[in-house]
């Protein structure tokens, strides 16, 4: 008797399509990932057990580099009239071009008298330069001036004051920055650090174990 022959289908699946999708996604994620804005100032932050994320909104950041230079940057939403306030305080006239450039600038790393030429620099030029930093000595404390201007320009706003210091920077620099903040009645800071695990068996570890919800 003739039997109908059932054709055995191959169990091999064509992986080509799946492979295409995988790599398409890979390419997409790599390209879509926001690149860290190339930082002109290289800072290696110390580690801490804190598990709170550094605020990314309404921040005013003071960076201390490893050679104890101080740089300032702030959230775009905070920039507003900072330059006007600074001009008022120091009797400097800033041109409209300067103000526009300041809105686009990622950070400030020069004394006030070099500010307009600094704002004209392109990011490529910035990368090549060694920046002098903002002076913070007691006779000409411009870090203090910047903080005051930022506070004046953003009255009523809850700002996060970040301090991002390099491992190798001196404590005295950090103290000068803190003192400048203190003069503006700001006593709460966030120190930017790298996350680190809580050492096992330590008091904090036990505390977290007892009430995990409280650790947040």
């Amino acid at each position: 008797m003739a039997r109908a022959k059932i054709k055995r289908g191959s169990t091999n699946v064509d992986m080509t399509a799946m492979c295409d999708v995988a790599f398409l996604l890979l390419t997409f994620f790599i390209l879509a990932a926001k690149f860290k804005p190339s930082e002109a100032i290289e800072v290696v932050t110390p580690a801490s057990v804190s598990n709170k994320h550094a605020p990314q909104k309404d921040y005013f950041n003071v960076t201390i580099s490893k050679d104890n230079k101080v740089f300032i940057d702030m959230d775009d939403a905070m920039k507003g009239d900072v330059l006007d306030e600074l001009g008022k305080e120091r009797n400097i006239q800033f041109s409209d071009a300067d103000k526009k450039a300041f809105q686009l600038a990622t950070f400030v790393g020069v004394p006030l008298n070099q500010l307009s030429s600094f704002l004209k620099l392109t990011p490529e030029q910035l990368g090549k330069m060694t920046l002098p930093g903002i002076p913070y000595d007691s006779t000409n404390n411009q870090v203090l001036a910047w903080i005051t201007a930022a506070v004046q320009a953003n009255q009523g706003k809850v700002a996060n004051f970040l301090i991002k210091g390099d491992n190798a920077s001196k404590y005295t620099t950090f103290k000068s920055v803190i003192d400048a903040f203190k003069k503006n009645e700001i006593f709460k800071y966030n120190l930017v650090t790298n996350a680190e695990d809580v050492p096992q068996g330590s008091e904090l570890y036990k505390k977290n174990m007892m009430s995990p919800a409280k650790s947040e």
Partner: peptide, 20 residues
């Protein structure tokens, strides 16, 4: 890549100083 991008966020330590 997905995991590493979300992990890179820096943490921050709160510091409260008293008034002088």
């Amino acid at each position: 890549f997905i995991f590493t991008t979300t992990m890179a966020q820096p943490t921050s330590m709160n510091l409260n100083m008293p008034k002088d």
